[in-house]
């Protein structure tokens, strides 16, 4: 697709997103906000999965740690958003610095160690109930406020999330197009070759892991202000799996892919489940279909069809 067309498409999508609150009711608006937040989380997973070739299953940890930090500061200690939100992101990122040590392993060992990390965080959230509130979690999180500027309705919050999202996407685009991003993809393609070229692959992967954790933490902060409460489910293994699936269904290694995946999965879950009890089977079918016929996700499928159409056109 030519560059001009891409930019035009992006603008159209953005315009649609900006105009959405005018047509969508509160439920759909809430659901789309949720899709954005989880899309961002899926995007953070995809930095590792799609670009560096690392399959992380502990991203719910960063997400939850930052959500918990922000919620606890804001609710129990009445810390303003201007401090609570950055503190949340910081906490998640620090955890990323620790868990990042997992990049010393590769392949299935990396997956296993991240699962273990994820369970540790879930266990703490679940069992240390005097601090985290156990199953009841932390409730009554207010809308974010910055001095006199305060979010007062879900619509305003929607725009806030959208703005953060656009900034993140631009930043992400710059990051993956940079030499750093190229190096990551190089490592994914052939780590030994990158090493022999003199790249310090462990360090690159470590940095990518931490950046990805920071992005997941940002999603966690957005999540806690959307949900207005957080409980151990946010840190649970199924969340980590689900966001990885979002990236895969949408298309790994792309920017829109994780968001499309998040839209499909959350949309299916919330919409199908309202009239069909076996909605989980529908989700299963979707995954099977994706794996069989669109291994590069929805984006990959669209690109493939586009290329075919262009070829047919020129013929």
């Amino acid at each position: 697709m030519p560059k001009a067309a891409r930019i035009l498409l992006a603008l159209v999508v953005l315009a649609a997103a900006v105009l959405l609150p005018r047509v969508a009711g509160p439920f759909w608006l809430g659901l789309v906000t949720q899709m954005y937040v989880f899309g961002l989380l899926a995007l953070s997973v995809d930095l590792l999965l799609g670009h560096a070739g690392l399959f992380s299953l502990c991203h719910a940890s960063f997400f939850a740690v930052s959500a918990y930090t922000t919620a606890i500061l804001q609710v129990r200690h009445a810390v303003p958003t201007a401090l609570a939100a950055p503190a949340g992101i910081l906490a998640g990122t620090i955890l990323g610095l620790v868990f990042g040590l997992a990049v010393r392993t590769r392949g299935v060992y990396f997956i296993l160690i991240t699962i273990a990390f994820g369970y540790v965080v879930w266990g703490v959230a679940h069992r240390w109930s005097s601090f985290t509130g156990g199953d009841n979690g932390v409730t009554n999180v207010p809308f974010p406020a910055l001095g006199t500027l305060r979010v007062e309705s879900p619509t305003e919050y929607y725009y806030l999330v959208l703005a953060v999202l656009v900034l993140c996407t631009i930043g992400y685009r710059v990051l993956v197009a940079s030499p750093f991003g190229l190096t990551l993809r190089g490592i994914k393609a052939s780590e030994t070759r990158m090493r022999s070229l003199g790249y310090h692959s462990d360090l690159h992967l470590y940095v990518a892991f931490v950046v990805s954790a920071a992005l997941a933490s940002l999603a966690g902060v957005l999540y806690v202000y959307y949900n207005r409460f957080v409980n151990p489910v946010a840190a649970s293994f199924p969340i980590s799996v689900e966001v990885a699936l979002m990236a895969i269904v949408g298309g790994t290694g792309t920017i829109v892919g994780p968001f499309i995946g998040s839209g499909i999965i959350l949309g299916l879950r919330n919409w199908v489940s309202s009239f069909f009890e076996l909605y989980a089977s529908v989700m299963g079918l979707v995954f099977i279909v994706v794996v069989l016929w669109a291994p590069d996700g929805v984006v990959g499928l669209v690109v493939r069809l586009w290329v075919r159409a262009v070829k047919a056109g020129t013929r």
Binding site: F27, F229, Y279
Partner: peptide, 21 residues
Amino acid sequence: IADTTCNPDQALTQARRIVHQ
């Protein structure tokens, strides 16, 4: 009837759905 799946996120979304929709 809205299925909460015993998951608080889903319960929240479904509760919002039945209230708003």
